[in-house]
Design a protein around this nucleic acid. Structure first.
Length: 509
RNA sequence: GGGCCGGUAGCUCAGCGGUAGAGCAUCGGACUUUUAAUCCGAGGGUCGAGGGUUCGAUUCCCUCCCGGCUCACCA
C-alpha cells in the first residue's frame, strides 16, 4: 500500500486513495477540478426561507428554476437516481438526481462524488411524495473536492479536542456549533447598535503597549526588533480609552482582545474579548442602569428572549437587577457560617480581617491588606452563589487602583461588578480623575510589586499627565464578551464560544 | 501545578490476561421519490508512546505524551 503524504492522515489511506482516484477520474472526464466560480440564484438558506412553505401544486403550476451551490453532506443512492443533501452551512436542501434528467457528463460527475464535495446544481423546485422541498437537477457542476472523509453524520464530531483543533470540521458537521458563533456575531452587532444609538464612538487603541496597564494581571511580553524594545500585549485598553476622554471624546467604546498570561480554564482563555466603554459626566450608578439595559436589550436582540437557562438554573435578564454591597454581602455570608454577627469593623483592619479569614478556614496572603482579604472572602463565600443577575458594589480601595473613592468612606470606591450564573460578567467604576491621588495609588501598587505581586499595576507617568490636563467625571465599564456569549448560548466552556481557543500545540507524530 | 476521568477502525463507541468487535463511513452488487434509505457481500486497526510483569499484554504495573473535568490564580 502506498502512503499519502498528507500530514496527520497516514492511517486513513484507503478512503484517501479512493477520493484522490475519484478526483483523477473527474479529470479524465474533462471536468475542471478547481473551477473558479459558480453563478447561483439563491443560497440554500434563501431557498428554504423563500419556498419552504410553497405548496406542491403551486411549484408544479409555476415551475421555479434555481441554481444553488454547497457541500454534499448526504447521498442516498438508488442506482439510476439519487438524493443528495446540499448544505450552505446555514441550511440544507435536497437534490434529486436521476440519470434520465441529466446530461451524461453530469451524471458521470454525480457518480464520482464523495461526501463533503462542493457542487453547483441547476434545476427546478418540486416536492417529493413525502412533501420535502427538493431541486430536480437538470445540470450538476463539480466545484471542489473533499479529499479527507468527514466525521460521521449522525453523532457528528464529539471529540472535544478535535472540535477545537479542527474547528472547520466542527462547523461542517455540528449545527449547534455554527449556531453559537452566529449568535456571538449577533450579540456583538447588538452591542454596537446599543452603544452607537447612544452616541458612542467605536475606537481602537494599542494592543502592544510599553506599559501594561488598566488591570491587575500578568502580561505577555514581546519584542520590537527595529526599536529594540520590549512591548506588552495589553491586559486592558482602559488607560488609553480614558486618555481619549481627556481628549474630548466623551463617549467611546472598544471591543477587542485582551491578553493575560494566566491559567486556562472553562472560564479563562489567555486572549479574550472585552467591551470597554467610557461615558463622561456619569458615575457608576448611571452605569448600573445602563448595564441592565444593555444586557437585556442584547439578549432580546440576539436570542429573542430575556429568559435564559444556565446550568439547570432559569435566569431572567429582565431589569432591575439585585444590588448587593460587597462588605455587607461578606458580613452576611460570614455571619451565617460562624453563627454570630460579623461587624463592618472586622473587615476594616488587617488583624481582624485576617482573624476572620482564619476562622472561616480561608487562606490569605501574608501581605494582603483588609481590602484584599475582604475581596478574597467574597470570592470564596459569595461569588458562585450569584446566579440571578446581581450588582455587587462598593469595593475596597485597596483592590481598585483606578477607581474613585466614596466621599463618605475613603477606604471604599465607587465600583461594581455584575455577576450572572456565578460568573463575573462586568466590572465598572467611577473613574479616579484626581492625578495626585492616582499617583499615590500607583505608588502603592509599586510597593506591592516590590513585595512580589506580579499582577500589581505599573506606574504610568503619561497617564497621570493626561489626568493633570483634566478628566471630566467619568464612568467606565468592561464587559467580558466571551462570558456573555456563554450565558446567551448556554455554553459551559469559554472554548465553546471562541472559534480557535488556545491549545497546547500538537507534536508531530 | 494538584486531584479525578479518558485516548481501541475515518467518525461514534463496546471489549479488558489467550493475537480485536458493532453502527455509521469506505469498496463491490441490487434498487428511478429517499429522509440516519434498504438488502447482499468485502476490505479496513503497531488498541496514545516507551518500559516492566507474564508462556502470552489492548487488558495488570511504571514512566511519559495528549485531552477533558475540577481545585488553586484570574475576567
Amino acid at each position: 500500500m502506498t502512503h499519502d503524504d498528507t500530514p496527520g492522515t497516514l492511517h486513513n489511506t484507503d478512503q484517501l486513495l479512493q477520493r484522490h482516484e475519484n478526483l483523477r477520474a473527474l479529470a479524465r472526464l474533462g471536468v475542471a477540478l478547481f473551477p473558479h466560480r459558480f453563478d447561483r440564484t439563491h443560497t440554500v438558506a434563501q431557498l428554504v426561507h423563500t419556498y419552504g412553505e410553497t405548496p406542491k401544486a403551486e411549484l408544479e403550476r409555476q415551475p421555479i428554476q434555481v441554481a444553488a451551490s454547497g457541500r454534499i453532506l448526504g447521498i442516498r443512492s438508488f442506482g439510476k437516481a439519487s438524493f443528495l443533501v446540499l448544505s450552505d452551512g446555514e441550511a440544507r436542501i435536497q437534490i434529486y438526481v436521476r440519470q434520465d434528467s441529466l446530461p451524461e457528463l453530469d451524471f458521470g460527475i454525480y457518480k464520482l462524488l464523495d461526501l463533503g464535495d462542493f457542487v453547483g446544481v441547476h434545476g427546478r423546485l418540486f416536492r417529493t411524495k413525502t412533501n420535502e422541498l427538493t431541486i430536480w437537477a437538470a445540470r450538476l457542476e463539480f466545484l471542489a473536492k473533499c479529499l479527507i472523509p468527514l466525521p460521521e453524520k449522525w453523532h457528528g464530531l464529539t471529540d472535544i479536542e478535535l472540535r477545537y483543533r479542527q474547528r472547520y470540521l466542527d462547523l461542517i458537521v455540528n449545527p449547534g456549533s455554527r449556531k453559537v458563533f452566529r449568535t456571538r456575531s449577533r450579540i456583538l452587532a447588538a452591542i454596537r447598535q446599543f452603544l452607537d444609538a447612544r452616541g458612542y464612538l467605536e475606537v481602537e487603541t494599542p494592543m502592544m503597549q510599553p506599559i501594561a496597564g488598566g488591570a491587575l494581571a500578568r502580561p505577555f511580553v514581546t519584542h520590537h526588533n527595529a526599536l529594540d524594545i520590549d512591548l506588552y500585549l495589553r491586559v486592558a485598553p482602559e488607560l488609553y480609552l480614558k486618555r481619549l476622554t481627556v481628549g474630548g471624546l466623551e463617549r467611546v467604546y472598544e471591543i477587542n482582545r485582551n491578553f493575560r498570561n494566566e491559567g486556562i480554564s472553562t472560564e479563562h482563555n489567555p486572549e479574550f474579548t472585552m467591551l470597554e466603554f467610557y461615558q463622561a459626566y456619569s458615575d457608576y450608578r448611571d452605569l448600573m442602569t445602563m448595564t441592565e439595559e444593555l444586557i437585556s436589550d442584547v439578549s432580546r436582540a440576539s436570542i429573542g428572549t430575556e429568559q435564559i437557562a444556565y446550568h439547570d438554573h432559569a435566569i431572567s435578564l429582565r431589569p432591575p437587577y439585585r444590588r448587593l454591597a460587597l462588605r455587607q454581602a461578606v458580613r452576611h455570608a460570614a455571619s451565617e457560617r460562624l453563627g454570630r454577627e460579623v461587624g463592618d469593623g472586622e473587615l476594616r483592619s488587617r488583624e481582624s480581617a485576617a482573624a476572620l479569614a482564619a476562622r472561616l478556614g480561608i487562606e490569605i496572603g501574608p501581605d494582603d491588606g483588609p481590602g484584599t482579604i475582604t475581596t478574597v472572602l467574597f470570592e470564596h463565600l459569595v461569588e458562585h452563589s450569584l446566579v440571578e443577575p446581581t450588582f455587587v458594589y462598593d469595593f475596597p480601595t485597596e483592590v481598585s487602583p483606578l477607581s474613585k473613592q466614596r466621599d463618605d468612606d475613603p477606604d471604599t470606591v465607587e465600583r461594581f461588578e455584575l455577576f450572572i450564573g456565578g460568573m463575573e460578567i462586568a466590572n465598572a467604576f467611577s473613574e479616579l480623575n484626581d492625578p495626585a491621588e492616582q499617583r499615590r495609588r500607583f505608588e502603592q501598587q509599586l510597593r506591592n510589586r516590590q513585595r512580589g505581586d506580579l499582577e500589581a499595576h505599573a506606574m504610568d507617568e503619561d497617564y497621570i499627565r493626561a489626568l493633570e490636563y483634566g478628566l471630566p467625571p467619568t464612568g467606565g465599564e468592561g464587559v467580558g464578551i466571551d462570558r456573555l456569549v456563554m450565558l446567551l448560548t448556554a455554553s459551559y466552556s469559554i472554548r465553546d464560544v471562541i472559534l480557535f481557543p488556545l491549545l497546547k500545540p500538537k507534536r508531530d507524530p
